[in-house]
């Protein structure tokens, strides 16, 4: 049985950064890139299932969509216990939104036929929390979002999962497999991938595919397959603040002034 773990190379921003000329994204020069933290938990959950099963019976496949720079996160995933890595090149995916990305993942899932798809609950940089659920919708599989506990024996017809609700409630769900689950932080303790194991993972091949290779039609790729489009990214103007100084009566006078100003 296979477990497919789609992972994302996410950006974290410097304190100071600049936007691209088109104003629709941050200039990558001002970003540090790393494996999405949520995906680390999803990967760890998959690797723990594999390690609990008889040796060789479970294969953990990691998938990412991006340029060859994204191989870094696949290497890290391989170092952390994934068996095989696939990268779908993002050429032609510039205008892709999370649904268009989900189309790629869903196609790979159809080809690989995993028993489970484990996604991070969301990405650390964009936080849509939609990709995983979109994959499930496209595949028509059972799905559960924001899973905080996962109990699954490879080959079983169902997985037992738990979700945390408001007020300390826990919801226990039985999900039919194959299923798509999105994994919450804290479900486990992701292991550290030492630099040595990452270097050793360099020796493992990464399967590199194009969207066409995985079986997508032109009408499903990139902007054509997207349901939304980013118009602008910007930093909103900050609200003003003022510290009112002086004697209590001066302060009251200034406060009244501000109130009348705001009320117009």
């Amino acid at each position: 049985m296979k477990i497919l773990v789609p992972v994302k190379r996410v950006a974290s921003l410097d304190d100071e950064f600049e936007l691209n000329d088109d104003g629709r994204d941050v200039d990558p020069d001002f970003c540090e890139f790393d494996l999405n933290e949520f995906d680390e938990y999803a990967l760890e959950a998959a690797v723990q299932i594999k390690e609990a099963a008889p040796e060789g019976s479970v294969e953990v496949v990691v998938l990412t969509i991006g340029p060859d720079d994204a191989d870094d996160v696949l290497r890290k995933a391989l170092a952390k216990g994934a068996d095989r890595a696939i990268r779908v090149d993002d050429a032609g995916l510039e205008e892709a939104d999370r649904v268009a990305i989900a189309r790629v993942i869903a196609k790979v899932a159809e080809n690989e036929e995993p028993g489970l798809v484990l996604c991070g609950a969301q990405s650390a940089d964009q936080g849509n929390a939609q990709t995983g659920m979109s994959v499930a919708a496209l595949l028509g599989w059972a799905r559960t979002a924001v899973v905080s506990k996962l109990d699954f024996t490879p080959g079983a017809a169902t997985a037992q999962v738990e979700r945390e609700l408001e007020g300390g409630l826990v919801e226990r769900i039985e999900v039919e497999t194959p299923a798509v689950l999105t994994i919450q932080l804290g479900i486990n303790t992701p292991r550290y991938a030492s630099l040595r194991s990452i270097k050793q993972a360099n020796a493992k091949p990464i399967e590199c595919l194009t969207p066409h290779d995985v079986g997508l039609a032109d009408a499903e790729i990139g902007g054509a397959g997207a349901l939304s489009r980013v118009r602008r990214v910007f930093v909103p103007e900050r609200g003003r603040g003022e510290i009112i100084a002086g004697t209590p009566s001066q302060q009251v006078a200034r406060l009244l002034e501000i109130i009348s100003e705001v009320n117009g």
Partner: peptide, 29 residues
Amino acid sequence: VDEGEMDPALQRTLGAVNKTGNCFNESRR
């Protein structure tokens, strides 16, 4: 370390060093 058995705080620091080249997880700039 090779087995990844360490305090989570240490794991975060090593991750930061790998990513940013410093243990404060600050940007190189």
